[in-house]
Amino acid sequence: MRSIMRKQFAVQYRDWCAQLAFMAGAWAVGILGHGIVHAAVKNLDAAAEAGTIAAVIAGGILLFCVTMNQTVSYFNLEITLGLTRKQFLISYYAVCAAGSAAAGGFLGLLYAAERALNRFFYPGCFDALPGFGPALRWSVPLYLLVLLCAVFLGALRLRFGKRMQIPIWVTWMVCWIVGPKILTAAKEQPHSVFGRIGRALLQALAWFPAKAWAVVLAALVISLAAVTCLILRRQQVT
């Protein structure tokens, strides 16, 4: 299995390197932007609100890259080159998980570096955006969940072809654009349509204890992985 992992890494390492480079680039842009805002606005509070904005942008890039994973391309390429479907699934999950963990660790480094820079250049500023620190601690399981979803969507695209493009696009938009909008509206405009949906969602979330949601989430993860396996088990190269 080690040799299979090595092969899988040979295929994926270029994309992971690109992803880390994108994250570093986004982080650098965030640092520069923060500096420019700080210098231009001459208002410590306004600049401080940006907090660890560079790490947040890098985190966003990481999530984007994980969701946009290349399951379809990797599957076609590797099965064509003689890998079995079982070998593909095991090695793909393993290498993706390792890559996600590495990217999560890298994001932690960027976050720590930005905090150190902030303390040095803007001693009076807030240290970080509220909530980002705890989110970072959960980054690896979060990325794994996103990764599982992304591989599942990739498997659907392999199985159903272009017919799945629109549902996947709609799901993606709901998750990353409508979702945050609903949650923001629940706090800021509770009587708007989005605000009502958001409040209902939060109430539903609060209905069960956190442990119950954890079980539901685990069941969802297992189901996604199982359905992905079932799809790829007899999937043909397209």
């Binding site: 092969k7 391309s73 076609n76 390429l77 064509t80």
Partner: peptide, 16 residues
Amino acid sequence: MSGSVSGLTVREYLRI
């Protein structure tokens, strides 16, 4: 198979 290899260079494909 252009969808699966179009992003790769010849060197990368042969390395894989």
